[in-house]
């Protein structure tokens, strides 16, 4: 069943994205879970373009398909309908080993740090460096990355002796060390206190602004919304809104709410 005319998302950046090459380009993406009778549609006609150098925050109630969209862009699932281009590569119809190749160009940051407890911070990061075959100076590369994230003193610590924020920063170092053009993050600050969370997003903001990385982040954390260039809202598998930060702030700022609406 085809969804009834989906509310056309306001692509505020259409003009801009045409000028610069986009990191992610999605056209008419439908996605289903299950097979046959149990087949259930979770994403409806998604059209989305992420230009390079942009930080995009994706919000939406749980079960709206945010994570599914993220895993599709991350080449962790294969798409069936529509078109999905990541870093210039069409993912539809790619085989498993090709998908693995695509993933190597994407940095993943998860809600949990997912570090190997048996490896030191440096070794955990080196595991990523080894993927691109750079064995010669992987130690220096890992140490430099950890240094950038303020963990220069902690390179040979194991995760058990690091704090939550430090662990998440190691995970970020692992995701960033190969300088991926696209970074996908799923609630990267959920497990962190206010200060650590702020540190983490500042690092990301820095990367996007200075090095032109594209970041797509799923979050419910209102404290970090200010770093976004753009906020998209996904509801029940449909893109409900796509707006700039300032517009979002205007419409969501409690001070600007019309006092009349609270009067009965």
């Amino acid at each position: 069943m085809k969804p009834a005319s989906s509310t056309a998302p306001v692509d505020a950046f259409l003009e801009e994205s045409a000028a610069t090459a986009s990191a992610v380009s999605i056209r008419g993406l439908d996605y289903f879970f299950g097979q046959g009778e149990l087949r259930k549609q979770v994403l409806y006609d998604i059209n989305l373009t992420l230009p390079k150098g942009q930080i995009v925050i994706m919000t939406g109630p749980s079960g709206s398909g945010k994570t599914t969209l993220l895993t599709l862009i991350g080449a962790l699932r294969s798409i069936h309908e529509g078109s999905l281009q990541v870093l210039g590569q069409e993912l539809r119809g790619l085989g498993n080993s090709k998908l693995v190749e695509v993933r190597r160009n994407i940095g993943f940051i998860f809600q949990a740090h997912n570090l190997f407890e048996s490896l030191t911070a440096s070794q955990n990061v080196e595991m990523a460096v080894e993927l691109v075959g750079n064995f010669k100076n992987k130690r220096q590369q890992a140490a430099a990355m950890l240094g950038q994230l303020g963990l220069g003193e902690r390179v040979s610590y194991k995760p058990a002796s690091l704090s939550g924020g430090q662990k998440q920063r190691v995970a970020i170092a692992r995701a960033l060390v190969n300088e991926p053009q696209l970074i996908l993050a799923d609630e990267p600050t959920a497990a962190l206190d206010k200060k650590s969370g702020r540190d983490v997003v500042t690092i990301m903001q820095h990367l996007a602004k200075n090095e032109g990385r594209t970041i797509l982040m799923v979050t419910h954390d209102n404290r970090i919304l200010d770093v976004a260039d753009r906020i998209i809202n996904l509801v029940d598998g449909r893109l409900e809104s796509d707006e700039t930060l300032s517009h979002f702030q205007e419409t969501h700022d409690p001070k600007k709410l019309d006092g009349q609406m609270f009067i009965l």
């Binding site: 991350g74 962790l76 080993s97 693995v100 190749e101 993933r103 190597r104 993943f108 998860f110 997912n114 595991m127 990523a128 993927l131 692992r174």
Partner: peptide
Amino acid sequence: ATLKAMGYS
């Protein structure tokens, strides 16, 4: 699973 997501086979 994370290793696989990073691109390990």
